[in-house]
Design a protein around this nucleic acid. Structure first.
Length: 577
RNA sequence: CGGGGAGUGGCGCAGCCUGGUAGCGCACUUGUCUUGGGAACAAGGGGUCGGAGGUUCGAAUCCUCUCUCCCCGACCA
């Protein structure tokens, strides 16, 4: 591709709308163009990257026997009503009417459509297992789109759906996809982790998220430095402590004044104790209006997801001031378990505490030297707090948690029979008995993967594409475009490289060298071939490796072989990080 | 939805407070000169000042309404 004939116009200045690195660089490199909030066009350079990622996905899924199809973006309400999600799904589902006043929506996901397709054809267990996928634009009317392709409203997603005869077979499909995903992100040259995630209150099935590790990630991931346990912070388990029967002298409980001291830090400082000597009492409100209390050691945080899952409820929110006063009799910031008439759940971190500090359910008052059993009773102990970096891994009990920031680029999810039951997707098994298909669903955000790749691979000069997803492999810089004889030689190099199968962007623009260098660095093509007068006089061309900055001089006739060697080496390194 | 900020040429911004008919840098066109890390000079082209209404002799500027976009938070199969 000749740069002078390509649709690529870089920006020297940072567009104001962009905050994150990937968003900024994608705009500056002319990869995407915003049409409306969270809705982007993929310009030629950006679309090349998208297609690279899509093709890696296709190749790896096809290897697992997955079959590609394409479903509509517009879906009728009936299907969603049938699965029960027309009412359940919130405003994220963009709904509209057609000319005949029928209800429709833009598909945010395709469980309903795929289940409808499959149920119409599925009759026998002999047709299973089945895994169908598509790469298609989804639409979710996000509350707040942001960060360019990272969280758009319209976005390209690969979604796959598996159908199996039973649970065991579904597990097999699940792990096949897990393996395929691992290969896909490896091939994309990304540093990533597969993490155990929370599957929500719907069903007791399991799920893994694939996170690209990057400072700017929105999610927090904890990973054991000894075993393979890795989990989203919402899910990461905490080691259950043993009950220790220490011979601690239980001091008499005492009510003390703590004027204006509400937060754990303030109270601890005022009383001259450590935050870990306090017990925090959080009041939550359930959907039906009932309140519960959750206790956690002062230096820890309650994990709402764990509380929800423990109670088996879908909705849980921190109680408002009014509820707190009604339930505890005191203002927020001074809540404590003594005298509470609501269920009290305590995190394991409280189990072995003694002579601790709690709120007195009265303004400006706390109790000190409080003890479990003697002063109040707990309904139940459970793992209810957020795990923190450095604590002992609950699985191997040897390693410690390390913390990472991640960008979720993919998820594998075992659905079970939720949709096949709701939509009557059945088959006859080998005994002639009718059964529901056991399903799984598997997503990869294609645009988000591209954005995550940039978040992970850039420097102050621009993008550094991993070879396998780079829009071009080589950028050929002609520094003497006006010299006809010279240019003829470079034209030949361009032709040679193209003929030999390299994807080459040929910078044949009449611009000063500095400009071309800056552009080449910005758009992040992995290898630059720089052809200038001085080097040419020596009978060599210069190769610059974008990632390392390494410069190599080679004779033109050796150029192609050298490029191949460099690209292979890069690919090798990138795939095994 | 709550809080904050912004809409002026393709991009980044000034002008607004104190009304007088729009300006700067980058990009673009032409020419001269230059050519290994976003050159210089000269001459050009391009703007319903987000939209509607109002005040005024006169509105980018003042008033009212409205739309859009960005940031923080709540939310997120």
């Amino acid at each position: 591709m000749r740069f002078s004939r390509y649709f690529l116009y870089t920006l020297k200045e940072n567009p104001k709308e962009a905050e994150t690195v990937s968003h900024r660089l994608m705009l500056r490199a002319c990869m995407i163009k915003k049409l409306a909030s969270g809705i982007y066009s993929y310009l030629p350079l950006g679309y090349r990257v998208i297609k690279k990622i899509e093709n890696i996905i296709r190749e790896e899924l096809d290897k697992e026997g997955c079959i590609e199809l394409l479903m509509p973006a517009v879906q009728p309400a009936e299907l969603w009503q049938e699965s029960g999600r027309w009412d359940y799904y919130g405003k994220e589902l963009l709904r509209f009417k057609d000319r005949k006043n029928g209800d429709f929506c833009l598909g945010p996901t395709h469980e309903e459509v795929i289940t409808d397709i499959v149920r119409k054809e599925l009759r026998s267990y002999k047709q299973l297992p089945l895994n169908l996928y598509q790469i298609q634009s989804k639409f979710r009317d996000e509350i707040r789109p942001r960060y360019g392709l990272m969280r758009g409203r319209e976005f390209i997603m690969k979604d796959a759906y598996s159908f199996d005869v039973d649970d065991a077979s579904c597990d097999k499909s699940y792990w096949q996809m897990y393996d395929a995903y691992t290969r896909i992100f490896k091939r994309c040259g990304l540093k990533f982790r597969a993490v155990e995630a929370d599957s929500g209150a719907i069903g007791g099935n399991y799920t893994h998220e694939f996170h690209v590790l990057a400072e700017t990630g929105e999610d927090t991931v904890l990973s054991c430095n000894s075993c393979s346990y890795t989990a989203n912070i919402e899910k990461a388990e905490c080691l259950k402590p043993e009950k220790i029967d220490e011979q601690v002298e239980l001091k008499p409980v005492e009510k003390v004044e703590t004027p204006g001291k509400k937060s754990v830090e303030e109270v601890a400082e005022f009383l001259g104790v450590k935050p870990s000597d306090l017990v925090k009492t959080m009041i939550f409100k359930l959907e039906n209006g009932d309140a519960i209390a959750v206790l956690v050691r002062g230096d820890y945080e309650v994990n709402e997801v764990k509380v929800k899952n423990h109670l088996g409820v879908a909705i849980l929110e921190l109680a408002d001031e009014e509820t707190i006063e009604k339930v505890t009799g005191g203002p927020s910031g001074f809540s404590g378990p003594i005298g509470l008439n609501i269920p009290i759940y305590a995190d394991y971190s409280v189990l072995n505490m003694s002579n601790f500090v709690i709120g007195a359910n009265e303004k400006d008052m706390h109790y000190i030297n409080v003890n479990l059993g003697r002063d109040f009773e707990v309904k139940e102990f459970a793992d209810l707090r957020l795990a923190v970096e450095g604590e002992t891994c609950p699985r191997c009990k040897k390693g410690k948690y390390e913390q990472f920031k991640g960008i979720e680029v993919g998820q594998v999810f075992k659905l079970g029979t939720k949709y096949s039951k709701a939509m009557n997707c059945t088959f006859l098994d080998e005994n002639g008995k009718e059964r529901y298909a056991v399903m799984g669903c598997y997503g990869i955000g294609v645009g988000r993967t591209a954005a995550a790749a940039i978040e992970q691979n850039h420097d102050e000069n621009g993008i550094i594409w991993p070879v396998n997803i780079a829009p071009f492999q080589v950028i050929l810089l002609n520094l003497e475009v006006k010299d006809k004889e010279f240019t003829e030689k470079v034209d030949k190099m361009y032709k040679e490289l193209t003929d030999k199968g390299f994807e080459v962007l040929y910078d044949d623009r009449e611009m000063r060298p500095g400009f071309k260098f800056k552009d080449a660095d910005l758009i992040g093509i992995p290898v630059q071939v720089i052809v200038g007068k001085k080097a040419m006089a020596e009978g060599v061309v210069e190769i610059k490796v974008r990632r390392t900055g390494e410069r190599i001089k080679v004779k033109p006739e050796k150029m192609a072989d050298k490029l191949k060697e460099i690209l292979e080496k890069l690919r090798e390194e990138e795939e095994n990080r």
